[in-house]
Structure formats: C-alpha cells, structure tokens
Design a protein around this nucleic acid. Sequence first.
DNA 1: GATGAATGAGCGTTCATTCAT
DNA 2: AATGAATGAACGCTCATTCAT
Lengths: 190, 190, 190, 190
Amino acid sequence: MRPKDETKREAILQSAMVLINTYGLAHTSISKIAKEAGVSPATIYIYFANKEDLLTTLYVEVRREMAGAILDSIDESLEVVDAFRLLWENLLAYYLAYPDHFVFAEQFHNAPIVDSVDPAEVDTHFEPYVRLIERGQTQGQLKNIPANLINAFVFYPLTELAKHHVKEGTPMEDDELEAAFDCAWDAIRA
Amino acid sequence: MRPKDETKREAILQSAMVLINTYGLAHTSISKIAKEAGVSPATIYIYFANKEDLLTTLYVEVRREMAGAILDSIDESLEVVDAFRLLWENLLAYYLAYPDHFVFAEQFHNAPIVDSVDPAEVDTHFEPYVRLIERGQTQGQLKNIPANLINAFVFYPLTELAKHHVKEGTPMEDDELEAAFDCAWDAIRA
Amino acid sequence: MRPKDETKREAILQSAMVLINTYGLAHTSISKIAKEAGVSPATIYIYFANKEDLLTTLYVEVRREMAGAILDSIDESLEVVDAFRLLWENLLAYYLAYPDHFVFAEQFHNAPIVDSVDPAEVDTHFEPYVRLIERGQTQGQLKNIPANLINAFVFYPLTELAKHHVKEGTPMEDDELEAAFDCAWDAIRA
Amino acid sequence: MRPKDETKREAILQSAMVLINTYGLAHTSISKIAKEAGVSPATIYIYFANKEDLLTTLYVEVRREMAGAILDSIDESLEVVDAFRLLWENLLAYYLAYPDHFVFAEQFHNAPIVDSVDPAEVDTHFEPYVRLIERGQTQGQLKNIPANLINAFVFYPLTELAKHHVKEGTPMEDDELEAAFDCAWDAIRA
DNA sequence: GATGAATGAGCGTTCATTCAT
DNA sequence: AATGAATGAACGCTCATTCAT
C-alpha cells in the first residue's frame, strides 16, 4: 500500500537531517527524529524499513536534489568554461538556499555508512557532469587527467568553502567566489 | 602503586580509530573499544575523562602528527614552489604510511563533534604552513587570495584523492601524483 | 496503540517498596525492580521519568494512603480525645495491614532524598490532623505548644512502636496499645 | 599490624558521614569517600574490611559517642526526674555540637543495613539508661510499662525535634526545650 | 602503610524495533 | 495508516574491590 501522507515522510527526513547536522549521527535516534517530526517512532517504520534505510534514502535524495539544482541548466550548447562557471554559480545558489544539505551530505559522505549506498544511485544524477568533462577534454579545454582528479579540484574546494561559510555564518562575497572560480579553472584547464 | 601504562593509552586510541573507520562514530562504543584494545571499559576512564574527551584527544593527536610529518621538513630557505612540492610529497608519504589517520580525521572533521575541539589546539601546528603562504604571497609567487582559499585547493583535493585510494585499496601512481600537483599549483600560483 | 497497563505501574511501585525494605535504597536498582515486577527495565521509564521520580512518587503515594486511612474517619463532631484515640487505632490497623508502608516511609523520610519531595504534596493530606490539633488547643484540651511538638509525641512514638513490632514480627498486644495511648495523651493533654 | 595514622581513620569515617548525610547511602561510594578524605580508595581497605564494615563501624562509634555524652553524667544518686532532665539537656547539647551524628544515626537506623549490626554492641552503652528506668519504676516514679515504650516517648520525640531543627537550620529555643521535656515527662511519669 | 592503576560487574538510561489497538 | 506501549540489548559510565609498586 502506498503511504498516504507525503508531508509526514518529508517531515521525518527533514527532522533526521537537522538532528544529524546538529548532534551528529551518533546522537540521533529514531525516537528523537520521531519527536522532532511530530510522529510516533512506529510511524517511521511505515515509511522506511529501518534506520539505515532512512539514512541512506535521505542521502540519496539530497544528492539527487543537489545534482538537479546544479546540473539541470547545463547543456551541450554551452562553452565548457561557461558551463563550469554556471555550475559553479548554481552550486553557490544551492548552498545558500539549503546549507543543511551540504552539511549533511559531507558528514554522511565521510562516514563508513556511505558504503552501504549503491554508488550508481548517486552517480547517475551526475552523468551530465561527467559528459561535460569528457567534452572539455576532447575539445582540449581541460587537462587530460582522470575525472576524479577534476572532481577533486572542482567540487571539493567549493564544497569546503561553502561548509566553511555555513559554519561561520558569514556570507560568501562576490570577489571570493570569483577568486575561487579562477583557482578551480586554473587547476583544470589545459 | 602501578605506573600508568602508556602502551594501554595508545592501544585505546588506536582501537578507537580503527573501529570508527570501520563502523563509524555512531557504532563505536566504549565497550567495543575496550574489547578491541584488550582492556576493561573502566580502564578507558583512567586515561580519558569521558568518550568525548577520548575522541577529541584522538583527533587533536592525529592532526598534530599529520602536521609534523608534513611540515617539519619545510623551512624558509626553500623556494615556495619547492616547499609546496615537498609538502605534497610528505602528505602522500604520510597517507601511504597512515591511511587510517586520514580516514579518521575526515570523518571527525565533518561531524558536529569537531566543534567541541578548540581550533587553536589544531591550528598551532599548521603555523609553518600559514607562514609559507604569506611568504609566497609577499614574494608574488602565489595568488593574493585568502589563506582558506589556498587551503581549499591544496589540502582538500589531495586529501580527497588520498581517501579515494585508501578506500579503493589502489595505490596512487606517480603520474597521478604529478598531475595532481600540477593542478594544485596551477590553482594557486600567481 | 496499547493503553497503559495500570497493573504494571502498581507492580513496579510495589516491587520497589519490597526491595527497598529488604535490601535498602542503596541496593535497589532499576533492573532489580524490573525483574521483581516482571517487566523490562525500559518499561519503568514509560511510567516514571527516572529513578528519583519513581521513588518520590512511591513515597508521596504511600503518605497519601496513610493519611487517608488514618484521617478519613476523623470529623469535627468527635471529642478531641476520642478523635486522637480513633486516629491511634486507625494507625495501628493500617500498620497491621500494610507494615511495608511504614517501613518504607521511615527509611525514605530519613534519607536525604526526601528533600526532593515537595513537602506540600504530603502535608496537604494531613490537613485534617492539623485542624484537630488547633481545635484541641482552642478548646483547652491540648497543651499550647507548637504543632510539630504534638506531632513528635503522637506520630513518632507510635510509628516507632509499629516499626519495632514489624521488625520483630511480634504482634502488638491490646494492653501495650492502651499503655502507649495513655503515654501519648498524657504527653500532649493540657 | 596496627594502623599508623589514627587521623586518617577518622578522616575516612568523618567523610563517609558527611557524604551520606548529604547525598544518601545510595550515592556515597568508596572512591568519593576516599577523595573527600584525601586518601586513596585502597587505603580505606587498610582500615576497614569492606564498605559494610566501614558503615557499621561508623554507626557503632557514633552511637557509642552519643551514649557516652548523654549518660556519663547520670548516676544513681540523682532523683529520677532530675536524671531524666539532665539526660535531656545532654542530648540537646550533643545535638547542637554534632548534628551530623544525629542525622547519620537516624538514616542508618532506618535502613535495612542496621540489621547487620549486633544490637548488643550498641545496647551495652545504654545500660545506665536501662537501669535508670528500672529504678524509676521500682520507686514508683515511672509508669510500669515496657522499656521500649518509655524509649519511644523519650528518645524519639527529642531526636525528631533535633533532626527538624538541624534540617531547618533553626536553633531550638529554651521554652521549646522546656515544653518538650514536660511532654516527655508527662508521658512516662507514674 | 599507602598508593594510583586496573578490573568485571553492575549502574541508570536509551536504543532500534515490534506489538496491540 | 498510525499510534503509544513494550522490550532485550546495548549505551556511557561508576562501582567495590584487588593488584603491583
């Protein structure tokens, strides 16, 4: 049977994310999530098979949303550098709108539990990004290096910057964003 | 009276790190650490005030060791680019020798518990690195951008690469290292 | 959902009282209470916030029951001496029926934990007794002394006698009861 | 071998009493007593066989001191009523000087652990008191009732009054003492 | 005699999960 | 679908006691 109340499901996921960001995976229990979401602990088991399922589902959905927000406006007609630039700005806009998503994704990504997520489930959504890199390399605009290296100089530095500003509660200034993009682009351009 | 057994303290810290890397902060309990270390749970409380103290102590010590291994051979007589290059190689050597340290530090760094560590306790040990950046900027070899930006393009990408290879169990090839350094240097050089 | 099982709550309170009377406050743990009551330790926390809440609740309920049993039949139409005599007999009957209550109340009353009970919660139920003393003093049948002094010569001696007989397992003979009442009345009468 | 440092033994007993009066038997551990007394937990086991031995020893010594302070000045040349009056004043003086002793003795006396004390060890010291009662009864000044009844109207009421004033931190006024003695004497005199 | 180190057992409490309604 | 009741297992931590010096 299909669950009735979609808002309840969302409340559970959202509460889990907030608690995990605030107190950590280790101190976030089902009953606390239930209380925060305003439902019974038992209700959570109607929407998710168990705690791990809840957490990994949350991670996959967050990653999917992030990928969509960042990549949806990227298309093959754009110059590679402009595509990267757009991607960069999308990422920034997203982090401003949903800082929680970044913080959660980073925590989860660095915990062993991430291994219980099928990488394909996440990777699929980043497919346009992979194609962008391939195009940049074929066209000679990007260094001819493994994709994960490109990754390491595009996503992680910005993610790190974003996290830093979220934590400090300070906004990211335009010129810092500009400088950061220059660094990233210098790092990977041919 | 019996003197404190320093090897016991080390066994506790080491066991904690291994378990946290394997099962995560959330699934690493005092009694599991004790069992892994071959001591009684009560013994842990002779060496550490409580679980948080144990974890933060572990983090600070790991960071200190990392800083030492990476920075000790850096001195002011080196050209800036050579200093960065040396630092890069030190980092790689360290990660090959102590991959656990990287994995643990990343997990801890991305969990909320990191906020209970006094940043100064960690930052002090990276002071030589900060001075290196300043020198590079005064001498015009580095971009004139905030230190945390430089950071974001030097440490995090390599850390990320290192983590990736640790997880996959694959070695990092010389040419990948070379390519990665080129990216990093291109990112930050003036 | 399942409704709360009131018999379970009672079993917990009763088990706590029995164990405390037998082994003392210091040696009565939640898990022992749970075992004695035939429930899980966790179940106790459905009915009580924590151990202290369980103990103080037990004390207040015991005191309330004692007050009811002793004072309910006292009314203002009785002569003061007859009222005291009736109270005396009620007390005796109650101690014969529920010796555990006396023993527990005394142990609790003499332990520092009693300070965490709001005195008002207990005192309210002894209000008729306070009024009886006031009446006896206004009518000139009782000595004009503070209420706690009257108390000290009415309740505590009998309580002590009752405890003594409970402990020894001997019954209180009619003539001892008679003699005891005479002492008490001689102590407080004008 | 005889323990060397008598002050250490006293410090342990005194610390135990203070902690038990403040936090209760249930929350007073050997290691807390040791810390309060400024010794090692292991040292306590040089002076006492185990925790129970420490506690019962403390109780017996407190009772002995109380008996001595109260009864030493009583001798057979005194009129019975004067003897009771003197005893009364001694008791008051003692409670003013050592309120802790009263509070501890009452707590211990009402806990099941008291059963592990040989009553004879305590009763011996109250022998003069028992003889006083016998004399009073033979001479016809006291009611002809069991000794424990006399007890119940002499010691417990005053003890209760004393405890009350200790807890409230208020002094006992002369006239209250006077009134209390009158009550007690009226209770037991022939 | 005196100590701090060391411990297995137990503490009060919360956990993830299931049950009964 | 949704709930609060219920639980055995596990949590972080402290216990009374002993060990090694």
